[in-house]
Design a protein around this nucleic acid. Structure first.
Lengths: 200, 200
DNA sequence: TCCTACCTGTACCATTTGGTACACACGCTT
DNA sequence: AAGCGTGTGTACCAAATGGTACAGGTAGGA
């Protein structure tokens, strides 16, 4: 049904770029086709179905996320707080907003079971926790604590990005992020929680 | 074009309930109609258009959020950390997940400009920051710091809910939330950051 | 009784939807 | 030359889409 080849690769790249900028919305196969400079016939040929196209776009999005992360992790030199600050500055950069809008749109659809977006959920948390926990352990955190802290960090970043995308208040979210980072700098070195349980 | 009346109220309630459980997805006006026990003709009559229906659903969702918040705020007796724990326990409760799935689905659509979801963005951050900053000031925080801390708290809650909805790992997100709350308990009382800027 | 507001069903509309059938062209091997 | 994998255009399909026209029902007030 679906095909492989250079033409397909080109289409995937074009689709990711287009969708990042314009979103998925209620766009039809034909609308995608004309926007991508091809025909709906070709999209069916290469991806089998509309859903197949969206799955591919979602997968490619995941890959972009990972690439950005790897890039930043490789360039790390200073202490972890500074890495976090640089990381956040990259995420909050206006140039990234189309990507993040798409990310949250697909995330939301995936949570509702949309088969065209579900692949995005694969490791959408764990992959980042793994990648963030590593530098934290290097900075001296105990393994279990590093994972918890990484998980919290991912949540803070995503929550503040949701805020930023809705309000556009860069200064406000920057201040909040700075408070978060500063909290760890002020707290006792091994700020391990989790021994105390959250009550219902 | 659009009408007002008890029948409409009934439809809005039914629509919110249905959409909370099944999401918006690509559902057609007719699918909504039969699911709501009415005809697509009636939805057009009461809401003018499909989009009008979704706007109303989004508005009602916002209201539900506020109601939950007000309820918890009114019942507050202990220190803020305990209020936060109770609050989180409510948010993380499995019964709330359909609502939260819908919230994030609509949030994502709104970020992409979907006119049927845009009303959700109105005060989607500020209303919560206002409501959280108040008990924080009562607990002794300086006004500006209370707002920053509230904003960070909203981000943490939303980020961890995204995590929870994707992974289902209640224990993991609970631990992360507990670490976040504990951070403020361990840090110096007036943990005001923001004097230091995030570099680009 | 008539009027008006609210509510609803049937039938219909043009347009668009995702997907298919089929013919065809290119470049490469055999 | 023949065959093959890859790619593409045209034409078509049944089904579904959002929305409308129109007719009518029911209640209450004048």
């Amino acid at each position: 049904m679906t095909q492989a080849g250079p033409a397909r690769e080109r289409l995937v790249r074009a689709a990711v770029e287009y969708v990042a900028e314009h979103g998925v919305g209620e766009r039809s196969l034909r609308q995608f086709a004309t926007a991508l400079g091809t025909s709906h016939r070709m999209l069916i040929y290469h991806f089998g179905s509309k859903e197949g196209l969206l799955v591919e776009v979602a997968r490619a999005m995941e890959q972009r996320q990972r690439d950005l992360l790897a890039e930043l992790d490789a360039a790390a030199t200073d202490g972890f707080s500074d890495v976090a600050r640089q990381f956040w500055a990259r995420l909050a950069d206006p140039a990234m907003r189309p990507n993040e809008r798409l990310f949250f749109e697909l995330y939301g659809r995936a949570l509702q079971g949309d088969p065209g977006a579900l692949p995005l959920l694969d490791g959408v948390v764990d992959a980042w926790v793994d990648a963030l926990a590593q530098p934290l352990r290097r900075a001296g955190a105990a393994p279990a604590d590093a994972r918890t802290r990484a998980r919290l960090g991912v949540a803070v970043a995503r929550g503040l990005l949701l805020d930023l995308l809705a309000t556009g208040d860069r200064a406000g979210v920057d201040t909040a992020m700075e408070q978060f980072i500063a909290l760890y700098e002020m707290a006792p070195a091994s700020a391990s929680a989790g021994s105390r349980s959250v009550r219902g």
